[in-house]
Design a protein around this nucleic acid. Sequence first.
DNA 1: TTTCGTTTGACCAAGTCTGACTTTGTGACC
DNA 2: GGTCACAAAGTCAGACTTGGTCAAACGAAA
Lengths: 159, 159
Amino acid sequence: MANLADKIELYLKDMLGRTADGFVVLQRGTLAHIFSCAPSQINYVLTTRFTVDRGYLVESRRGGGGYVRIVRLGLETEGNFRHIMSELIGEEVAPERCRQIIARLEEEEVLTKRECALILGIMAENTLAAFTAHPRRLRAALLKEVLTTVCRDDLNPDD
Amino acid sequence: MANLADKIELYLKDMLGRTADGFVVLQRGTLAHIFSCAPSQINYVLTTRFTVDRGYLVESRRGGGGYVRIVRLGLETEGNFRHIMSELIGEEVAPERCRQIIARLEEEEVLTKRECALILGIMAENTLAAFTAHPRRLRAALLKEVLTTVCRDDLNPDD
DNA sequence: TTTCGTTTGACCAAGTCTGACTTTGTGACC
DNA sequence: GGTCACAAAGTCAGACTTGGTCAAACGAAA
């Protein structure tokens, strides 16, 4: 259990644990230097340990002033949404079921009324069906994105 | 946020925020001198950060007494707003343009930060491209859907 | 031995910054 | 008015600075 990837994972999770912002920003090169490894090793850690399934989101930017940003997806909501999430993977969501899910999220005050309206507008059958033969699958994929975003700790200041 | 371009962008937006005129006038050389950089760096900032998609217009004049003028294109109330935006969106929207348009809507306080995150998540190239050969067209269609929702009177209690 | 997760290095993509060269406007001098 | 020097700003190729990808080597466990 003493391999590099695990150490880097621990290091990053420790950082995430210490901050109240719900995210950390770092430089790939710098981190690689700290652990005396190839920069691509950092990518390996990120893609294997900091996935959406495991409750993390990674954003980055190249070029001068580039960075890697790791966002924590709320654990408290995990119980509720992990279930729905897994249901959505590789599945289809009919318009009616979509409305139900969104309505429930509004009832639970996870989404505001306006956010629900925005999402439902986007999920409309007409629009999606005009672009794909599998609108229900696309809807499932989009819904997954929505749930992921909703869990982002950097957007929900816990005050 | 450690790069020059971002700092200059912030500086200019701060200036724009302080004035009531909706525009600022400055000299490229002077600004370059303030930031101790090449004058062409200013052009870089202007072309990458002050685009029409983001709601800015840049005019300039060469020669003695030359200047650069940055105008902020406000989103006039309701009526025009929708027209302007749908004009801007057009038939196709590339990922980068989408980000710029959404960023503008956030700056103009038409959308909240969270709403932007939700929309950007949905508009991600990966997701859309997995379902259609024309992700840019789908993105444009979805963006227009968002516009429609945003304009709904019943969602914006006039306070 | 096979397998599968780890680690690396070569090559790629994207964003930033500069410097040399070009274009355009102004004013002075003829 | 024409010409010339000067004073801006514009353009663009290329260097530089990051991060991303991928295939192949490595290594420990089954």
